[in-house]
Nucleic acid binder design. Structure first.
Lengths: 330, 330
DNA sequence: TAATAGGCTGCAATCGTTTGCATAGAATAC
DNA sequence: GTATTCTATGCAAACGATTGCAGCCTATTA
C-alpha cells in the first residue's frame, strides 16, 4: 500500500547519501564516478525499494525520453504489422518504447501528428508512409529530428531508409514469367508518387527490355492507389486496349487481387487464360484461389533494420545517411 | 532557427504576465479564472510563438501523461491490427497517445512490460491478451491502474472488458450448419485458458443441445493454441476416433485453416466430404480455397469501444465495471 | 613535511508546469 | 464611509531527476 513509488530521494536517504550520488550510480555513463562499495550498496537499496527512475523527470532534465514515434498509413494493410512488430521489439530491447500512430488513409493531418510527436519530445521518428517528395520529411530533417524511413523512401538521398529491393524483385518476377513462356506481359503499377510504385515501374521497363520481351506502352498502366478496386479498374483498362497478353505482373498483392476480380467479371480463368503475379507477400496468399505467385518481402527484417538504424542515429545524429535495400524472393 | 521551442515563460514575459496566468489560460479547467480580454491576448501570443505545452513537465507535476499502454500478444495475428487501429484513433481524438507493446508469443515477460508502462506513468492500459485467470490483471486492479480488456476477458467480473458475443456467434454458426442439413457436427475448440476458447466451447455444448443435434464428446476437442498446426492436429485427432461427422465447427479461423490442411493430407474434400466453419473473420478468407464460412467480428468497433470505456474510467476511476459484448454475424 | 594532484561526494540550480495561498483592487452590503 | 465579499493576478513551492562546480580527503611527489 505504497503512497507512491519510491523516488530517488527515498533511496538516497535510506542509503545515507545525496540524491545526486544515487543518480550517478544508476546512470551507466556516470556509474564509474562513485566508489564500488557504495555503488553496490545503493543498487541493493534501490532494488529493495523497487525504485524505478521517473522517465518524465529524467526526460525533462535531459531532453531524452527514450521514446520514438512510429507513423504508418494503415495498420490493417497486412504489410505493416510485421514491420511495426520488428520495430517495436528492437526498440524495446534497448529500453525505448514506440508510440504508434496510424495516419489513416485520409492522411489525418500527418503534419499535426508529427507536431504532436515533437511536442511529446520523441527522440526519433520512423515513417512508413512517405511520398517521393514529402515536405514532412524535409521538415523533420530541418528540425534535426532523427528520422528513418521504412518501406518507402523519398527521391532525395539525404535520408536514412530501409526498403525492399524492388528492382531485384521485379527482375525475379519477370524472369519467372518468361521462364513459363510468357512473352506478352502486362503491368499494373502503383501510384507514382510513392517510391515503391515508381521504382517498380521503372524496374519493369528496364527488366522487360533486358529480357527481350515486348514492352508495349499500352499494356502498362499505373493505378492511383495500392488497393483492390484500383487494381480491378486497371485491369479493365488493359483489356480495353484490345491488345493481347498472357500474363499480368502487378506491383502489389492488393492490385493483383483486383485483377482477379476483373478476370472473374470477364469470365476469364487464371492461370489458363491469363496468369497473375503479385508483389508484397500478404500472409496466406497461397490459399487464395487461384494461388497467387508473389514475392516474399522480409517485412519483419525491414522493421528490425529500421529500428536499428534509428538507434544508431539517435546515438550519433551525424552518422551519414544510409539507404538499405533488403532482398525479396519469390 | 529557434534554440528551443517557446516555453510558458516566454509567453508570459511577452504578455507581461506571470507564467501561472498563462498556464491557467491554456488549461480548460482553469480558463475561467482569468479575465476574457487578457486570456484572448495570451492565447494570441501563444499562437504567435508556436507555444506547445511540454507534456513532460506538465505530467511531472500533474501525474497525468495522456498516454495509454496497449498490450497485444501478436500484431501479426490479423485479429489485432483493426482493434489497435480503433483504439488509436479513438484515443487520438481525445489527445491521448498509444504506446504499443507486442508481448510476443513467448509472452516476453508481460509483467516486465506492465512494470515498464507503469514506470512511464501511463494513465491507463488496454490488454488484448488476458487469460481467464490472469495475475497481471489482478495486479493492475490492485494498483488502481485504469484497465480495459479487449477481445478476451477474465473469469472475474470486476474488470471492464469489450468482447465478442461468442454465444451468439456459435449459435449462428450451429444453426447455419443445421440448416444445411448437418446432424453430426464436430467441434475444434481453442485453449480453455482463454475466455474466448472457453466461452465458445460452452456455447457449443449448449447450442448443440438446444438445436437437438448429437453431442458426442468424442467429436469435441480443444486445441492448445489458436494456431494452424494446432487445428491440424486436432482434426487428425477427431478422425482417429473413427466416428462419423459431416461438418466441423472451429473456434477460430486459424484452427479452421489447420483443418483444411488435415483434410488435404487425408485426401478429403471440402465441403463435399466434410464442411468446415471458422470463427474470427480474418481478412480475405472469402478468397481461400475452398471459401471458408466464418463469423464476422467487428474488430474495429471492439477497439473503439474499449478506448471509449477506458477514457471514461480515466476520467472517473470509480465508474462501475462493465462488460460489453458486441454482436458478430455470419 | 609541505605542496599538489586526483578521486569521491555533496550542493544547489535547473528542466517547464501546475496550484495552494496571498494580496490588491473592485464591487457589494450595511 | 467602512466593512465585507469577490475577482483576477502574482508568488513560490513543488514534481523527480541531472549535472557543473566546489570541497574534502587521501595519495603522490618533491
Amino acid at each position: 500500500m505504497l503512497k507512491t513509488r519510491a523516488n530517488i530521494k527515498d533511496v538516497a536517504s535510506r542509503a545515507g547519501v545525496h540524491p545526486s550520488t544515487v543518480s550517478r550510480v544508476l546512470n551507466p555513463e556516470t556509474r564509474s564516478m562513485v566508489s564500488d562499495g557504495l555503488a553496490k550498496e545503493i543498487i541493493q537499496i534501490a532494488d529493495e525499494l523497487g525504485y524505478r527512475r521517473n522517465p518524465l523527470a529524467s526526460g525533462l532534465r535531459t531532453r531524452r525520453t527514450f521514446t520514438v514515434g512510429v507513423i504508418i498509413p494503415d495498420l490493417t494493410n497486412p504489410v505493416f504489422p510485421p514491420i511495426v512488430r520488428g520495430v517495436e521489439h528492437t526498440l524495446d530491447s534497448e529500453g525505448y518504447i514506440a508510440i504508434l500512430a496510424d495516419s489513416g488513409s485520409r492522411r489525418r493531418s500527418e503534419k499535426a501528428l508529427i507536431e504532436n510527436m515533437k511536442a511529446r519530445q520523441v527522440d526519433g521518428l520512423i515513417l512508413a508512409a512517405a511520398n517521393r517528395k514529402d515536405p514532412l520529411v524535409d521538415q523533420c530533417i530541418e528540425q534535426g529530428i532523427p528520422l528513418v524511413l521504412v518501406n518507402r523512401t523519398v527521391d532525395k538521398h539525404n535520408v536514412t531508409a530501409v526498403i525492399n529491393d524492388d528492382e531485384l524483385g521485379i527482375d525475379l518476377a519477370v524472369r519467372h514469367l518468361v521462364e513459363l513462356g510468357h512473352r506478352q506481359i502486362a503491368y499494373v503499377g502503383g501510384p507514382q508518387r510513392t517510391s515503391t510504385g515508381h521504382a517498380r515501374y521503372r524496374a519493369f521497363l528496364k527488366t522487360a527490355k533486358k529480357a527481350g520481351i515486348t514492352v508495349d506502352r499500352d499494356l502498362i498502366t499505373n493505378a492511383r492507389e495500392f488497393t483492390e478496386p484500383a487494381g480491378q479498374a486497371a485491369f479493365h483498362e488493359l483489356m480495353q486496349t484490345g491488345k493481347k497478353f498472357t500474363a499480368v505482373l502487378s506491383a502489389n498483392d492488393l492490385l493483383a487481387l483486383g485483377c482477379y476480380d476483373a478476370l472473374e467479371e470477364l469470365g476469364l480463368r487464371c492461370p489458363e487464360d491469363i496468369s497473375v503475379t503479385g508483389f508484397n507477400d500478404m500472409p496466406y496468399v497461397d490459399r487464395f484461389v487461384p494461388p497467387l505467385t508473389t514475392l516474399h518481402i522480409p517485412h519483419d527484417e525491414l522493421g528490425v533494420q529500421a529500428a536499428t538504424l534509428l538507434l544508431e542515429r539517435m546515438q550519433s545524429p551525424d552518422t551519414p545517411t544510409k539507404q538499405l535495400r533488403l532482398e525479396p524472393r519469390l
